[in-house]
Amino acid sequence: MTNTLLKLNQLVVGYSTPLVSDINIQVHEGEIIAIVGPSGIGKTTIIRTIGGLIRPIDGSVELLVEPRGGLGYVPQKLGLVRHASVEHNITLGAISSSHTIQQASRFRSIGLCILIVSLGIWFFKNPFAPPLFFLGCMLYIPSIIATIVYTNQLKKTVVKQAMEDVGLTEKRLEPVRRLSGGQQRRVATARTLAQSPSLIVADEFLSELDQANAMIVLNAMRKLTDAGSSMIMVEHNIERARSVADRIWTIKDGSLVQEVIEHA
């Protein structure tokens, strides 16, 4: 029995009124699942609820992946930092799954809080201010150095590999806003590759792509699913969904209908 990554129990999603109700789904390791249906029916709402961006109206979402870096989320508008370079965007994915950087970030926040407190009590000539200030610096400065050093290390390994996988090594330092739509989608894919999450949630990530770009994106995603990641994708093209997915959910009359596909 493979591990379950996501459990949706009696889930009702929607913004103020329920859009889709009574969702009971389990997602196992290595599965590719497509949510299909016409636009405006609540596909993206389900995805956003799974991503934790909106609260469910009723029921619960049980994410059995790591809280940090375990879930890869690719919104329809890709969510890239448009003014930053390709490398920066892919590094974002890499640092979100890095435990070292998470620890460093925690120490940095604690250090910053101590620094602010020490400066505050310095104003009132409290004798504890200088040692507190020193402690804050000792937490803050090394954690910043560690973050920079480790991020550079990630850039040389994971990020470089992900860029090679999607063929964007020459565009490394180009700002994302100067890239074409297909190239931007490849950047988003590389970001997810560098993150290597156990569950990928992608909204319409194959739409508006020509055949060549779609193949690059799909192959990169396959690389992840072959390694054991699961994927939930929203797709309006049912033919393409059939060719990619293991299971398909269709939304009919405000509830999910499941369709199992037997691959030849």
Binding site: G52, R68, L71, K77, V81, R82, A84, R108, S109, P197
Partner: peptide, 28 residues
Amino acid sequence: DSAPLEASRATGLTRPEILTNVVIPETS
């Protein structure tokens, strides 16, 4: 744009990280 914020929030980045890596480059 809200999409970069949503993507980084769902992946689990902390607020200071989102500020330095997403918000400041995007609004620079």
